[in-house]
């Protein structure tokens, strides 16, 4: 049973509007990129199957709307996430500063069992726009180290830089959480309804 188990992992992507969340997901799943910006309304979903070591894992990726920050889908939406990906735009300091409030919001809404060990991954996107960079790599790395050693990647959804690598790490970290889970044990015997075995009527 254990080896044949199929895994489905729920991955939530958060971050300010227009940092490239949808673009990253599209690049990863569909290998496509478009310059055109269409704000996500509510949420988008895509799935992707990946091999992690010898395990086939399905990622159910929930791309959320950055613009809806204060009217998000809320608690229910984050419920049962296996990994949270936080994205900022390296050309926008504000989007990076907001990462920590995204983290707080996620933790307070989803209320995971071990908040200290919950797998987050941070992505600094639009690496192809190096000339307009506002967030130094060192600053972001430092923040990730200070926040429980979150894996950190600088990516470009446009040029497909580090996208596969980032999602591979996302899948691996999400899966590591699952492995630590106990197995489901449904077998609880009902302790026979009767009290007095002594009075047992002769049967056959």
């Amino acid at each position: 049973m254990a080896s044949g188990r199929k895994h489905l992992l729920k991955v939530i992507i958060l971050g300010d509007s227009a940092v490239g969340k949808t673009s990253l997901m599209n690049q990863y799943v569909n290998k496509r990129f478009t310059q055109q910006y269409k704000a996500t309304i509510g949420a988008d979903f895509l799935t992707k199957e990946v091999m992690i070591d010898d395990k086939l894992v399905t990622l159910q990726i929930w791309d959320t709307a950055g613009q809806e920050r204060f009217q998000s889908l809320g608690v229910a939406f984050y419920r049962g996430a296996d990994c949270c990906v936080m994205v900022y735009d390296i050309t926008s300091s504000k989007s990076f500063d907001n990462i920590s409030s995204w983290k707080d919001e996620f933790l307070s809404q989803s209320n995971p069992k071990n908040p200290e060990n919950f797998p987050f991954v941070v992505l600094g996107n639009k690496l192809d726009k190096e000339s307009e960079r506002k967030v130094p790599n060192a600053r972001a790395s430092q923040w990730c180290r200070d926040n429980g050693n979150m894996p950190f990647f600088e990516t470009s959804a446009k040029d497909a830089i580090n996208v596969d690598e980032a999602f591979q790490t996302i899948a691996r970290n999400a899966l590591s959480q699952v492995k630590e889970e106990e197995e489901y044990k449904p077998t609880i015997n009902l302790n026979g309804g009767k009290k007095d075995k002594g009075q047992k009527k002769a049967c056959c």
């Binding site: 199929k6 799935t47 159910q60």
Partner: peptide, 19 residues
């Protein structure tokens, strides 16, 4: 597995109403 995105959307509809 194929349906997990569709199921995500169904859940999102439910969540939205819960909200």
């Amino acid at each position: 597995t194929d349906l997990s995105t569709f199921i995500g959307s169904l859940a999102a509809i439910l969540y939205k109403f819960q909200n």
